[in-house]
Design a protein around this nucleic acid. Structure first.
Lengths: 146, 146
DNA sequence: TCTAGAATGAGAATCGTTACTGATTCATGA
DNA sequence: TCATGAATCAGTAACGATTCTCATTCTAGA
């Protein structure tokens, strides 16, 4: 996705939330857009060469989460990783390496995704649960750790 | 599941790992067996009426995890919840309430589960990923929060 | 029973994360 | 452009979950 297009999508959403789209926030959004999986605050801090204080990263992520720009992800013990929300990136699932903890995004072919949607609504119906989203986490060994 | 049967399953596995199946460990295993979803260390501490020190609970959970008796679960920010491993309870998935944070186990009918298994192995194949397990997390509102 | 190694209890230390504070930057209207 | 107040920033303190340390207690085998 082109950065400018991304910013054009994010900006109105933040304006609606009465939050400024500042340079610091743009940097985080761009960094998340170029990652191929969710990133933790510490990883973003390193990615950006420690140019942004860790506290600002946490604060920015909190603001972006509240505005629906990013979503948190908790597959690994003790740390939260964030990625751009699905309305920006499209629906996808995760490959979680049980060895090194890396998380990679994967797209699911439409036919399969349809099956999953049916499955989810059936299961939820039986349990009197109102589903809003679903996540298929595939655990295993990534190509580096295999 | 009868407690005695459960202990008969757990015991040899711990012996194999050269770990003792002590009274404190039995108490945690029993408590997990009677819960209908994963429990955090703090929740177990409360469930057991603070009779077991919180540090012992963490240590016991770590030992049980290493021996493959329990598996951790991280759907909620900042806290780990544990449940008996699937070889003791059967394969299942989770309903995660985005409002109150409660996690409930749910069984998936065989036909559906087969679809999911095929989906997982296909996706993993494309990404050169070696899957060991998968988890379908259904987020939404539980019957109390709807 | 005795002994060595394992497990436990209690508290301190650590880690990721969040909250707070004062300084700085920004957006707006004169 | 300049002044003003609001928003944001950086740095640090505080926080809760988890891990570590070590003295004590327990357990299994000699």
């Amino acid at each position: 996705m082109h950065e400018s297009k991304l910013h054009r999508q994010v900006e109105p959403r933040l304006r609606e939330a009465e939050v400024r789209y500042t340079k610091g926030r743009r940097v985080i959004v761009e960094e998340l857009a170029t990652s191929d999986g969710p990133r933790s605050a510490a990883e973003l801090h390193a990615d950006l060469g420690a140019t942004v204080p860790i506290s600002s990263i946490y604060r920015t992520l909190a603001v972006l989460e509240e505005s629906g720009i990013v979503t948190p992800h908790f597959a690994t013990k003790g740390i939260a990783r964030y990625e751009l929300a699905e309305w920006l990136t499209g629906h996808h699932h995760h490959l979680v390496c049980v060895d090194c903890g890396a998380v990679e995004d994967v797209d699911v072919p439409d036919g399969y995704e349809e099956q999953v949607r049916i499955l989810v609504s059936d299961i939820a119906g039986v349990a009197r649960f109102t589903p809003t989203n679903h996540a298929l986490e595939i655990e295993g060994l990534c190509k580096d750790c295999a």
